[in-house]
């Protein structure tokens, strides 16, 4: 690989503004296998799932979520093939629309830490009708020993921190998203 990350560059040109994904993406962006980063039920697979809610506590049936993650060993995947999954290649990226009940579900593996003392998480992007631009955040793993030293988690109040840490359930992890309200998810900017 000819690329060596050295420092962070943000750039100075004006960004093209975002616009809402609108209501009509359902026949365009979802595709077969989009949410299955690994085959469901394969060794090491987990389900990452949850519900997406609006400020009145109603489920959002027209949201689209994307996750991007390291593999189980903490490597950044750089293999193509997310749109035509072969069942063997881990691309680290997946997409899931919410159903009529606001529920989404991915089949994936737990992300590994990118290095000594680093904290593993799923990077998450949220789109929805009514949401004028993307939102981004992180899904941290429950009770991971490195969480206690993570600069972002440490900077948050207990309530805010709770919005970014998944809970374990029978099949893997549950992570709900609240776009607004008492339990509003903490969203991030990286600027």
């Amino acid at each position: 690989m000819s690329t060596i990350p050295t420092q962070i560059a943000s750039g100075s040109a004006s960004a093209t503004p975002g616009q809402t994904i609108g209501p009509f993406f359902g026949y365009a962006l979802p595709y077969e296998g989009d949410a299955d980063l690994v085959p469901p039920g394969s060794p090491g697979s987990i389900r990452l799932h949850g519900w997406v809610y609006d400020g009145a506590g109603n489920p959002i049936p027209d949201a689209l979520l994307e996750i991007w993650q390291t593999d189980a060993d903490g490597n950044v995947p750089q293999a193509e093939g997310s749109l035509h999954r072969d069942g063997w290649t881990f691309t680290g990226w997946g997409r899931a629309g919410t159903d009529l009940h606001g529920h989404y579900s991915f089949s994936t593996v737990l992300p590994g830490a990118a290095g000594e003392g680093r904290v593993p998480f799923f990077a998450l992007t949220v789109f929805a009708r009514g949401l004028l631009d993307k939102l981004q955040t992180r899904i941290y793993l429950p009770e991971h020993p490195a969480n206690a030293g993570d600069p972002l988690l440490v900077s948050l109040s207990e309530d805010e921190r709770a919005t970014l840490v998944a809970t374990a359930d029978a099949t893997g992890l549950r992570f709900d998203i609240h776009l607004q309200g008492d339990r509003e998810t903490t969203f991030l900017n990286y600027g």
Partner: peptide, 11 residues
């Protein structure tokens, strides 16, 4: 009902 009311946190 679909916009966050809090500013995003810097990471």
């Amino acid at each position: 009902l679909r916009h966050p009311t809090k500013d995003p946190r810097h990471a």
